[in-house]
Amino acid sequence: MIRVSGLKKSFNNNEVLKDISFQVNEGETVAIIGPSGSGKSTLLRCLNYLERPDAGSIEVGEVSIDAEKPKKVLVNQLRMQTSMVFQHYNLFKNKTVLENITYPLTATKKYRRREADAVGQNLLEQVGILDKQEAYPISLSGGQQQRVGIARALAVDPHAILFDEPTSSLDPEWVGEVLNVISDIAQKDKTMLIVTHEMNFARDIADRVIFMADGYIVEEGKPEDIFDNPQHERTRRFLSKYGRQVSTENNKEEPALVMA
């Protein structure tokens, strides 16, 4: 379970998160959508303290942190509760595909080499690139690299996995294979929080959708409600740009856009 309340974050004088509160239940998949610059990625990065929030509290699994007085020990424990899949994969370039997965296991979780290899190979098989285990990241396609990134995030067996726009820097031809892998994980009842621009994917995979704009959560709800019957003007405007069908009932002033 993830519980966030009153989270605030500014960069210099630019307030990126303005009082964010939400909850993700055990085993739930939540998609965060919204325009660029709305604070989605920053929110995700606050959850594992890659960014340090200014105020509010974060609770993930058994660890909770008050942003006003974060203890270093707690920050480390909080980071252990989650793992992250990055937009740019961020694989360790000096390590092989298998080592990318096993290095965190042997370094932090005190696995023996052979146990770690077994875990890693099993996960590589799940994401479909066991044959590349000895390769270095540079020789992989974007889609393959991201699948390794997902396997690495799964390996530490976190309480929740954070996906930060996992397909945004992929060539269109690789998007499908990565989304398929993520869908598989979602079906295994992993707790997942996904920032994405793939609206169809969010709709298909998420149990709940959060729409963010300008540092606020504008609305949240079941995918059908958000996509078919958004309550807020801001949400409708955003979705119309993505060409989603938006219910005309609540949207008299703007013509609905219908695409494919």
């Binding site: 890659l50 480390n76 740019h88």
Partner: peptide, 12 residues
Amino acid sequence: GQTEAAISTGLT
């Protein structure tokens, strides 16, 4: 990004 990835998997 690689440092961030390392930290996000629990490395110090």
